[in-house]
Design a protein around this nucleic acid. Structure first.
Lengths: 410, 410
DNA sequence: TAAACTTACTAAAATATTTTAATAAGTTTT
DNA sequence: AAAACTTATTAAAATATTTTAGTAAGTTTA
């Protein structure tokens, strides 16, 4: 533990400790004292209150580092639960996790198209309600709902400008009213980046760019250790920067977008065309169900040495690499993480990507940036959605839940 | 005043107040109380100490907002001085400013080429020494030296990897030893961005991209209200991103860089070529002294309606605009500021730039970004260099200077 | 294996900070 | 023009936080 010192208001200490314990497996009083720049007595007092209130438990002694062994504290996993929802264009996953991010009931996947679907919002609410009932967990025990979704999401305004219109009302307010639970939304890629920085391969790093390889190519940015959203909340529109001169026409209406040249959707389309034109591939059996192709089949094919698929992924990788070189020039990140549903494809894409970085980056920058593949993979968005709720956990939330836990005791 | 609340350690309150007073013209106790989240008594006590020690003065009453008029406090301008140095490839400007950023002695410009100049560092030191002597200001009264310089500057390492090599030693340490004053360095564009955000047209904005129009095209980034430098300190390498397919060969060795297509150097080169080929321009009298062309002549010509120059600048503006659209997609800034020596040219470039933004940006992003021209202009780098010293002002610095001021009194 | 050194935890004393209440000095309303 | 309302400043009381010192429990060194 050599986490950088945090500055917190004394009144926020309690919720901040709980947040920190959610992020770390366990901490000693001394560690928290240095972390929060508070004296040991005040930490001890606060921790004891948290134990008294049922949020924190002792988890034994850590190995000695040359003196008395420190007593470690951790969050009580079942003190509160979080509902985590991960949406994409075609399907939505719902689960409820405990404070160790462990699903307490199985992740449920429902097919729901977002585009031009005026009943999507109503459906989502009904899915949420029935899932909570099925789970057997009392609503009072759920801290809130975190949702990752594609589109132009403004966290500040609580609105997704692309999907799930709530008749002009704040989507977060609308969902909170409908479900009776505090609701937080964010862009899927941002949420995946949050998961990678809090619990994944980029844990505790401060400058991280996370590429969300889904049907499209998303970017989640971690700047100075936190999600970066830009001024109006639309930062990271990576896939629509003009990289290729006179390229394919993109759905966004412009030419030369990365997404129109190198997304998984494009790879699949090219695969279908190629197979139809007689190219040999193990994927020919999927040709009638192209959208399901993505479901690991394409990566499995690549991993099994399917030449055609490898060729297609390599080409996409090189193009993404060229765009990444632009990103690196501007952001100079420590790490780039390939994550999201298609993270597996990252393995095949990595070599051509690195090749493009070497070609298009100033050497000093290429040398200072490492390219990694997520180990969270498809779970990233779920974990990120849960983490989003805890990001917003504050004293107010704590007070509500303290009351609740005390009520239960009586 | 509705500045966002700052979290400061109690032990840092004194230096933080002084820093804040350097940035604002004046503040009342109540304002500082809300700003720093401290009680009025503690602010009063601290301010009185600062007055006692000679750093702060009362500057009268502010207009009432419906009650007793607040007593305003400001920094004592001559309590300390700052040496500010602005370097570019060809010349270096030196001055000493007071705590109102007013030069106390005239800004001195010396010709000094940075590239392949092994004696540049020694020259710089001698310029500094002689300027201090000439100024008549005691070294003890100078808080430190702030230097803006082109090149790959790593603030963390205190090294400029492009110029001013100090035999592997930290440049900041070397200069501090040689001059006897704490020295801080940063990239010229970053420092200009700092000036714009602290004292210029982007004052107090949190997400700002500042384009430094000099011989090259620099970028200084303000993210979350502070200079953004990236992980290894090289963020903002805007002018070498691959924007143009198969473009001109750049000095960086790559093709299609913005700098190779649209920098002022390129504009000047094209102007010379054009005039030689018979194009009419009021610049023909400068043809024998191309490097001096830049010295306002090119902007004057444009402002006077010189068609050829306007054409060249418009073309450069459009190209910069295309690159800016990439930057906007990634960063989603609130404001883009055209600054630096060539800020004047911004007026002519603005229309084609906006045109490129409209073409290459997703409409929602283009609409959310305003394009402004600096009013600091050529002074930006000097002001930023001074601000850089105050950025690093802390309790330690304060203690040293308190001692000094008390010594003087005895 | 005992002595010396580290580190962790607890309680009391010292210090720092905020809250409260009283007063001063304005503006706006009646 | 007086009364009612705001806002600023000051001093005293109440509260919060840190420092200090003492004890407990381990590791390392001689």
């Amino acid at each position: 533990m050599e986490v950088k010192e945090k500055l917190v208001k004394s009144t926020d200490l309690k919720s901040e400790i709980l947040k920190q314990l959610y992020l770390e497996k366990s901490l000693s009083c001394a560690e928290m004292s240095t972390l929060f720049n508070k004296s040991i007595p005040i930490i001890t007092k606060t921790i004891n209150e948290l134990i008294e209130e049922g949020f924190v438990i002792e988890v034994g002694y850590a190995p000695s580092s040359g003196g008395r062994r420190p007593l470690m504290y951790a969050v009580k996993p079942d003190a509160m639960y979080i509902m985590a929802i991960a949406m994409d264009q075609l399907s939505t996953r719902i689960t409820i996790v405990d404070l160790n991010n462990k699903p307490v009931t199985e992740i449920e996947t429902v097919e729901m198209v977002l585009n031009n679907n005026s009943v999507a919002l109503a459906e989502l609410i009904s899915y949420i309600d029935s899932y909570i009932i099925k789970s057997g967990i009392k609503k009072d025990n759920i801290l809130g709902i975190g949702i990752g979704m594609p589109g132009f999401v403004s966290v500040k305004d609580g609105i997704n400008y692309s999907y799930l219109d709530a008749n002009g009302e704040k989507l977060t307010d609308y969902l909170a009213k409908a479900t009776g639970l505090p609701t937080y939304i964010d862009n899927d890629s941002s949420i995946i980046a949050l998961a990678e920085q809090r619990f994944g391969i980029a844990k505790s790093l401060t400058e991280v760019m996370v590429i969300n390889l889904g049907w499209g190519i998303g970017l989640g940015m971690i700047v100075k250790g936190d999600i970066f959203r830009g001024y109006s909340g639309f930062a990271g529109e990576f896939s629509h920067i003009p990289v290729f001169e006179d390229g394919v026409l993109c759905i966004c209406g412009k030419q030369g977008c990365l997404e129109a040249e190198a997304s998984m959707l494009v790879v699949v389309k090219k695969a279908i065309e190629g197979i139809k034109q007689g190219r040999l591939s193990t994927l020919h059996s999927f040709i009638d169900d192209p959208l399901k192709l993505m479901g690991d089949a394409i990566f499995d094919a690549a991993n099994n040495g399917d030449q055609f698929v490898i060729e297609l992924l390599s080409d996409a990788g090189y193009k993404i690499g060229k765009a990444l070189s632009i990103l690196i020039h501007i952001m100079n990140p420590q790490t780039i993480v390939l994550s999201g549903r298609g993270a597996k494809a990252g393995k095949i894409m990595m070599a051509p990507m690195q090749q493009a970085l070497n070609k298009y980056c100033i050497p000093r920058l290429a040398a200072n940036t490492e390219l990694l593949i997520s180990d969270l993979g498809f779970d990233g968005e779920i974990i990120g959605a849960a983490a989003l709720v805890m990001e917003n956990f504050d004293n107010e939330q704590l007070a509500i839940n303290t009351k609740r836990l005390n009520m239960v005791k009586l």
